[in-house]
C-alpha cells in the first residue's frame, strides 16, 4: 500500500472525509473514482499519474446535492487553484474540500512531475503558417502585426465546431444559464458559430476565473489555442487590477465595486496605420 493509499484509507476511516475523489485503473484506463467508507477496501486500487479530469467539478456536483458533505480529492496545483476560485464564487464552502497534493507542473521544487501537459504537442506547419502556435509565449503572440494577429485568430476560431467542450470541461464554469446558449447573443443553426463573438464572450467570462489548467485546449476537437487566449485574459486582469486568479480567497475585480474608482476612461488605444 502506497503512502497516498494509506492516507486516503485513514481519512475515510477517521471520518475526516465522506467521499474521496481520485483515480483508479479500469480496463487499462486511469479513470476518476469516488472512494467511500462503505467500500474502503477499494483504496488499494487508488493510483496517481498523468490522468487529468476536473475532480473539483465533481466536487461541486456533490456539494450542490449534499451541502454538508466533506469531500476529499487528490489535487495538482491547477486543481487547488480551481478550488480557490470555486470557493470565492460560493460553489464550495470554505474548508469543505480537503486535498492531498500530488505532483504537477515541473519546477525546481518538483522534479517528479505528473501532468499530461508536460510535453505540449508541437504545432504542425499549417498551424504555424496560418494559425496561432499554442506553445508560443504571450510576448511572442503580441509581436505580430495587428492585421496578421487578427487573421491568425480568425483562422483558429473559424475551425470551431461549437461542441461547447471548452465550457463543459471547464472546472470553473458553473452557471445554470450560459450566455453561449442564449439565441439572442449567439446565433444558432450555423457553423462555425458567430466568430469571434462566441470565443470572446467566453474569454471575457474567464477574466478573473480561468486558472490556466489547459483542460479546454485539451478537450477542443479543433485544437483552438484557447489556453493562450485565456492566459492573455488573465494577464490583462493582472496588469490592470493586480489580481492573481486562483491564488486566494479574494473576489475578482469584476465582481466588486471597490471604495472609489481607481481608473479613468482610457483614451482610444493608439492605432498605428499598418
Amino acid at each position: 500500500m502506497t503512502s497516498i493509499q494509506q492516507q486516503v484509507h485513514t481519512w475515510l476511516e477517521e471520518g475526516r472525509v465522506d467521499i474521496f475523489l481520485a483515480y483508479r485503473m479500469v480496463e487499462g484506463h486511469p479513470l476518476p473514482h469516488a472512494f467511500t467508507r462503505e467500500r474502503i477496501d477499494e483504496t488499494d486500487t487508488l493510483v496517481t499519474g498523468p490522468a487529468r479530469y476536473s475532480l473539483e467539478k465533481f466536487a461541486t456536483h456533490i456539494a450542490s446535492r449534499y451541502p454538508d458533505a466533506k469531500i476529499g480529492m487528490v489535487a495538482r496545483d491547477c486543481n487547488q487553484r480551481a478550488l480557490n476560485v470555486l470557493q470565492v464564487w460560493n460553489q464550495l464552502k470554505p474548508g469543505q474540500v480537503d486535498t492531498v497534493p500530488v505532483n504537477c507542473c515541473p519546477s525546481l521544487l518538483k522534479p517528479h512531475a505528473d501532468c499530461s501537459y508536460l510535453e505540449p504537442k508541437p504545432a504542425g506547419h499549417v498551424k504555424l503558417e496560418r494559425g496561432q502556435d499554442p506553445n508560443q509565449s504571450l510576448a511572442q503572440a503580441d509581436t505580430l502585426p495587428r492585421a496578421e494577429r487578427f487573421d491568425r485568430w480568425m483562422y483558429e476560431f473559424s475551425k470551431c465546431i461549437k461542441c461547447y467542450g471548452c465550457r463543459n470541461i471547464c472546472p470553473v464554469c458553473f452557471c445554470k444559464d450560459c450566455s453561449l446558449e442564449h439565441p439572442d447573443l449567439i446565433g444558432t443553426g450555423h457553423l462555425p458559430p458567430d466568430i469571434p463573438i462566441f470565443h470572446l464572450v467566453r474569454a471575457v467570462h474567464m477574466a478573473g476565473r480561468c486558472i490556466d489548467c489547459g483542460l479546454c485546449e485539451d478537450a477542443c476537437p479543433a485544437e483552438i489555442p484557447l489556453r493562450l487566449l485565456y492566459r492573455k485574459v488573465n494577464a490583462i486582469v493582472k496588469d490592470l487590477f493586480g489580481y492573481e486568479t486562483g491564488s486566494g480567497d479574494t473576489l475578482p475585480p469584476f465582481s466588486i465595486l471597490g471604495d472609489k474608482p481607481t481608473m479613468s476612461p482610457q483614451p482610444l488605444l493608439a492605432v498605428s496605420q499598418e
Binding site: 486511469p30 490522468a51 456536483h61 461549437k162
Partner: peptide, 24 residues
C-alpha cells in the same frame, strides 16, 4: 452517475479513438 442518476458525460481522456475530445 450521482445517486443512480446520470448527471453528466465526459470524454475519456485516454481513449484511443477520441483522445479526450467529443462533439456536441
Amino acid at each position: 452517475v450521482l445517486d443512480g442518476e446520470l448527471v453528466g458525460t465526459l470524454p475519456m481522456k485516454t481513449h484511443p479513438v477520441n483522445h479526450g475530445k467529443l462533439c456536441i
